[in-house]
Amino acid sequence: MNSHEAVERLIYKSALALDEKNFDGYLELCDGAFTYTICTYSPEIRKDMIWLQHDKEGMKTLFKNLPRHNSDHSPLTRHVTVYTVDQKDDGTEAEVVSGLQVYKTALDGGATSLYAVGKIYDTVKLSGDSVSLVKRNIRLDTRELGIGHHVPF
C-alpha cells in the first residue's frame, strides 16, 4: 500500500471510529503528541475562535467523562472526503485537507439532517508502514449548532 492510500485509510478510519463512539479505537490512530482543535471564524466579532482543544491525554479524559454527563444521544454521521495529501520532502509527514459534513439522526423517528460542514486539516506522521494523526484541526463553516454536542467531530 502506498503512503497516500495509507493516509486516506487513516482519515476514514478516524471518522468511522467516532461515528461508532469507539473512542479507544480513535485514540489508537493518534500519535502520543496528538492535538485536536475545533475552530471557526465569527464574522460577528471578526475573530477566530477555538471551540474545543485538547492533547491526547485531554481527549482521553473527555471521552472518559462524557458518560457521566447528560447528553443528546442522537448519533452523528461524519462524511469525510480527502481532498489533498501533501507529503513533506523527507517523507516523514503529510499535510492532509479533507472536506467534512456531519449529519445528525434523531433517535425518535430517525430523521437525518445536515448538522455541520467544514474542513479538516490534518498532520499525519509517516514512519515505515505505520501512519498516525499528529494534529487535527477542524475548521467549521457552520456556527449555529443548536443545543450543541458533547462528542467531538
Partner: peptide, 12 residues
C-alpha cells in the same frame, strides 16, 4: 461553548 459540558446540558 457549543461543545462545552454544561451549556449542552442546559440547552438539552
Amino acid at each position: 461553548g457549543p461543545f462545552g459540558r454544561n451549556l449542552h446540558e442546559d440547552l438539552l
